[in-house]
Design a protein around this nucleic acid. Structure first.
Length: 607
RNA sequence: GGUGGCGUAGCCAAGUGGUUAGGCAACGGAUUGCAAAUCCGUCACAUGUGGGUUCGAAUCCCAUCGCCACCUCCA
């Protein structure tokens, strides 16, 4: 297997990935998660899914990955898009507008985020990891760690306290500030904002601790006031001597949370830090400055080369940033109606977006809903280093691609059978074994080449194309199925439960011979109501068959029910009553069962 | 204005000096009672535009147009 390479934003080049862990086994990864003041949009999730993809690819390379993604629930100000954060806390603003308590608001949107993340099959939020709190830490629950970092920064003289009891990072002490983003913010330009940060030594200095009496989330660094009791207890343990007495009650700045939480859960020096491209400046730039100032973390040079004494890439060794998702080639905008949350797409009518639902329905999405696996596929289908232009057409293409994979997968599953087929234990032909090896390697090589998903998908569809032209025995199907599942370990878009089956022509013939179904086909146009399968059978026997439109009580089609209708339909076909036969097929489709006639028999697929 | 990135067939998107990845859509054919699925073929001698280097350029150089993002400015 090839070696994994990643584009490191810090060096602006594609580098061979090598973990810090001396045994080469463990990898630590931190991803900037959502600020929970509204429902996450698909642009957020493109970035989150990029980290999910990276994590899966790391695991595929044999690494044991500890992946932390935080929840920002305090301190992210509305004007954090400039380095010297000003403005109102985004959470507090949303809470004020909704008339909610900010803590309640944060929890509401966090729950919604986790729900979305599960729908989109993010590994960090499913299975056992969902219940591991250290993997999804909340900022408001880490104020002790943040104050500890702030205190360190003051002691190390990387930060100072102003007259009002606020704490700033002293940018003059960190000459590498700007190296990640490549920004050279000269004082003259930044000087325009000096009036705002009146107590700053340098206009580029940014808040570590902010004092604002109007803010609803407040912590007193010198008493238990404002604290959750358990957090306060931990605060006392972490800082038995307390913090600088000049610091006044307030709340933490946004940037410090990631430095503090990643250190708390992953250590002071981590392998990979991910985020959206908008995080590069100022957020990640500030994190580097803080982490270095507080913990003096030098990153060994690329690939273990000796550090030249400069902090260089302090804090994280590889910086991986996903580029933006655009709509109509522009950033999403509520004003232009190009803003989509995940839930808008998964269920537009529930999200009160009827126009969107209509548009999607017109594009062939049932009930106007985009299936979550289709959305996942769409959001991961191009390379993260490229901007993605999102739209309904992309979703349609994603759906077609997922269906092509799913169809092949279902058929392979059928061919393998339920495990009782002794042929499945035989060794597959060299031709199939060669195919599986070759395409899995092509897939892995593509992903290892800086997560080149288009090339990885070329391997997937190449495999499907080749398999489609082959007649596979059970053992060969087993190998091919394994290949598809291997692809899907990364993609995670398939429905892996059995959802299709084949009823052979012989079986149907037997039923028709043993009963009088073929005679009864003549009565098909006179069906009456039939609430369940037993009654259906009775009616078939009695020659009183139900009309499909009256079958509303039969909501869940089970295997027996499908067999019955297949038999009835085959009787109709034999009687050349195609109107009835096609009617049965159409009605089954409405009920979520697709019927296909094949040379082997009658194939059904639950949709 | 500064910085970075991008323009590849109807659409999405690989490829970064030398046998046109892949997907989607459309169309034709095979198969089918009709479908579905699948196969074969077409659209496809595509690379924003104009120059240059080269035996050879999507790939390198220069110019130019357009788009995007970040910073700045303005609201």
């Amino acid at each position: 297997m090839s070696v994994l390479k990643l584009k490191n934003s810090y060096t602006r080049s594609v580098e061979i990935f090598q973990p810090l862990d001396p045994s080469g086994q463990r990898v630590t990864m931190y991803s900037c998660g959502p600020t929970v003041y509204s429902y996450a949009h698909i642009g957020n999730f493109r970035s989150f899914l990029m980290s999910d993809l990276l994590r899966r690819v790391l695991e595929r390379n044999g690494y044991e990955v500890k992946h932390v993604m935080n929840i920002t629930d305090v301190g992210h100000l509305t004007e954090d898009d400039v380095a010297d954060a000003t403005g109102e806390d985004k959470l507090q603003k949303a809470a004020r507008e909704m008339g909610w308590d900010p803590y309640r608001l944060a929890r509401h949107y966090e729950d919604a985020f986790v729900e979305d993340a599960r729908h989109l099959r993010m590994k960090n939020y499913s299975g056992g990891e969902a219940s591991a709190p250290e993997l999804h830490p909340r900022a408001a629950g880490h104020v002790p760690e943040m104050l500890q970092a702030i205190q360190k920064l003051i002691e190390n003289e990387y930060a100072y306290v102003d007259d009002s009891g606020q704490v700033y990072f002293d940018i003059a002490k960190f000459p590498d500030y700007g190296k990640l983003s490549g920004k050279v913010i000269d004082e003259l330009e930044a000087g325009a904002r000096v009036a705002v940060g009146e107590h700053k030594r340098d206009p580029r200095d940014f808040y570590l601790w902010k004092v604002d009496p109007k803010h609803l989330m407040q912590w007193d660094p010198h008493s238990e006031k404002g604290w959750d009791p358990a957090d306060y207890e931990r605060f006392r343990q972490l800082l038995p001597q307390g913090v600088d007495t000049r610091i006044k009650p307030g709340f933490p700045g946004w940037h410090i949370e990631c430095s503090a939480m990643s250190r708390a859960h992953l250590g002071a020096l981590i392998d990979i830090h991910t985020g959206g491209e908008d995080n590069i400046f100022p957020h990640h730039e500030c994190e580097i400055a803080q982490s270095y100032g507080a913990y003096s973390t030098h990153v060994p040079g690329p690939h273990g080369a000796p550090d030249e004494g400069s902090p260089r890439n302090a804090f994280a060794r590889y910086w991986v940033h996903g580029r933006f998702l655009l709509v109509n080639n522009k950033k999403m905008s509520k004003r232009d109606g190009t803003f989509y949350t995940v839930r808008d797409l998964l269920d537009p009518r529930a999200a009160e977006r009827p126009d969107l639902a209509d548009e999607l329905e017109k594009a062939g999405f049932k009930d106007g809903k985009v299936p979550a696996n289709v959305l996942r596929y769409a959001l991961i289908s191009n390379q993260y280093t490229q901007q993605m232009n999102f739209g309904v057409e992309l979703l349609q293409q994603a759906r077609a691609s997922v269906e092509r994979m799913q169809t092949r997968y279902d058929k392979l599953r059928e061919a393998v059978g339920d495990g009782t087929n002794p042929d499945a234990d035989e060794t597959a032909s060299d031709k199939v074994l060669e195919l599986v090896t070759r395409l899995e390697e092509q897939f892995d090589n593509a992903l290892n080449e800086n997560l080149n998903m288009p090339n990885a998908l070329a391997a997937v569809f190449g495999a499907i194309n080749e398999l489609n032209t082959m007649e596979l025995g059970a053992a060969e199907a087993r190998e091919a199925l394994r290949l598809m599942e291997s692809f899907d370990d990364v993609l995670d878009v398939l429905d892996r439960v059995a959802r299709s089956g084949l009823i052979t022509r012989e079986q149907v013939q037997t039923w028709l011979d043993e009963s009088t179904l073929s005679e009864k086909a003549a009565h098909l146009k006179h069906w009456a109501e039939a609430p369940d399968r037993e009654q259906l059978w009775e009616m078939v026997e009695a020659g009183q068959l139900p009309k499909f439109e009256d079958l509303a009580p039969v909501e869940q089609m089970d295997g027996d029910m499908i067999e019955l209708f297949v038999a009835i339909r085959q009787a109709a076909r034999k009687a050349k009553d195609f109107e009835v036969a096609d009617g049965i097929r159409d009605d089954l489709k409405i009920r979520g069962v697709q019927l296909e006639d094949t040379p082997q028999g009658f194939r059904w697929v639950l949709g």
